[in-house]
Design a protein around this nucleic acid. Sequence first.
DNA 1: GTTAAAAATACAATCGATTGTGATCCTACA
DNA 2: TGTAGGATCACAATCGATTGTATTTTTAAC
Lengths: 342, 342
Amino acid sequence: MTAKITPSRNITMVELARLAKVDVSTVSRALNDSPLVKPDTKKHILKIAAETGYAVNASARNLRKQSSGAIGIVIPMRPDSGQTISDPFYLEMVGAVSHAASKHGYDLIISVPTGENEIAERRLLQTGRADGLIVIGQAGRSERLNALGIMRDKVVVWGGHTGQQKYTLVGSNNLEGGRLAGEHLLSIGRKRILFLGDIDLPEVALRYDGLKQAHLDAGTRHDSKLVLDLDFGGRRAFDALQDLIVDGVTFDAVFGASDVLAMAAIHALQAKGLMVPGDVSVVGYDNIGQSSVSTPALTTIDQNIAMGGERMVELLLRKLDGKKVKSEMMPTRLIVRQSCGG
Amino acid sequence: MTAKITPSRNITMVELARLAKVDVSTVSRALNDSPLVKPDTKKHILKIAAETGYAVNASARNLRKQSSGAIGIVIPMRPDSGQTISDPFYLEMVGAVSHAASKHGYDLIISVPTGENEIAERRLLQTGRADGLIVIGQAGRSERLNALGIMRDKVVVWGGHTGQQKYTLVGSNNLEGGRLAGEHLLSIGRKRILFLGDIDLPEVALRYDGLKQAHLDAGTRHDSKLVLDLDFGGRRAFDALQDLIVDGVTFDAVFGASDVLAMAAIHALQAKGLMVPGDVSVVGYDNIGQSSVSTPALTTIDQNIAMGGERMVELLLRKLDGKKVKSEMMPTRLIVRQSCGG
DNA sequence: GTTAAAAATACAATCGATTGTGATCCTACA
DNA sequence: TGTAGGATCACAATCGATTGTATTTTTAAC
């Protein structure tokens, strides 16, 4: 582990060329492993490069190659507070995308649009800082995404497949996920399932559709009054659900559109003296790390975040390569834990 | 909301100059609001720039200016699994840093070092992709950080102040935070406080030191057997704590080095039939969003993540500007919620 | 109405790499 | 030994901006 002493100033390619007694063009080709340079020379140059700790200047390279070697990831913010949504789902997604990006030699630029610079995403592309964009979630921006116009071939979005989108979409099979959750709750004898989530979001709407589908499959219908329209934030869910209980709305199960919502629901129920899963069964969505250590452990729908992040990067790079790609759905599966009883 | 149609190819500065019938140098100065160009001309150029949707090419600009306009943020991974640590703390920190960075006109490049490319951080700096680095957490890398050598003046680290670090450090006052937690638990009559966390991490060690200090202040001593050495992951805490209970270790309070740990502890206790706060009081650390909606709501130490992120960016930019800066501590405060009883 | 000074603009070098093309070297074959 | 042709390498243009300096235009003062 003899860490090379970093020279005070970064060495440039002409200096490297001078040291190796060759032209810069040869150095460039050697570093890029071109067949145009003799193996011996190549070795010689690489050795000197290693000794001097040479690293190619990204700006120069990008300028010449007309690409940035970076992709941008856009994660949403809570519109009101200006705070990042603290749902661990996003962090896991960022981690997955970051991992995939670096595997392909790309950097990841994170962009959290605030109210003023809503076009930060566009700027990333237009200034050439990022070659492409990955947008997590369609929150309040589905139409904006459709309006991306010419940029469409540089963007991949994570969200729900409604069939209306003009952009490339990757997401879990939300309909199936919702159906699985509903099917499970109905199969253990639950009859009145409260749905928690922001129906305006395509991915959430699909999960709800899946829940309704499960009812139809079982020969029943979901009571449309059993929908608590909420954003993803756990705090509001916690309060709203307690209000609902006070109002006397009755239900024997809760299906949360995210694990964070479901966990908030569990706590709200417990705070009101209801037993989970004794009185009420609860199912979440995402399978975030914490869902397995809640009390009771949360039954949830796994949407394979790692695979999703990976696929988004792959599809984006293919698009950037000029290839046509199609939207994709990640498989979902039901993870049964204690929060449902049965 | 008349979104400008983006031209198929991005327009360049010479084309803009041609359109405005001036030299590129004048365009450049106009866009940078130089006093060398007449206000009228400036307005004229800016108008055309807006019409054409011109955006300055980042690579060219950075090449010329010898800076990238970006800072890198390094967040740790679980060394074993290769998975991102799913502690919401990191996401909130990324959000805060991202916000501060964009406020200063900087992009944020996220880097999640994996086993192989541990030097990804260095690469970011050496290739000029990032002007500086923000490293979140000292996990297993304190010595590596000290070894950064010449890069030290381009790095700011979030972590605990042990007095040994050679790098610029920002962090909450961990000692005081730990003391506050201990003081509170002792003040409500708790005697045997179990500490949860990875003592190898400077920030965690300091929190533990604070806990011991609180005992001394109260005229008692902390039983050193009441330390459960854990990494930040909640899953392991959940299991280990249950094992501890089975082993018959007795305690009447838990102080977790993070909210995630504390919440896992609550669930482990409940799973073993212990009441929180009836039998055991619990205090966490971080004040993440979810801590207010757990059952019972978590008493915790707030470390003002937003301010911390902001300060790190400010200090880093100051360093990049050649100025000397000193490490800083963010104030901490106790947030009392139900998990302690009393 | 000159002219000196100030203001505004144009010219040209430069940042550090990549890459098409031209120059040189070497091998092999006649 | 001469030379065709491939293997290497050097030369030079280029990517798109910034900035020091030269040049032109305008202003102001006499």
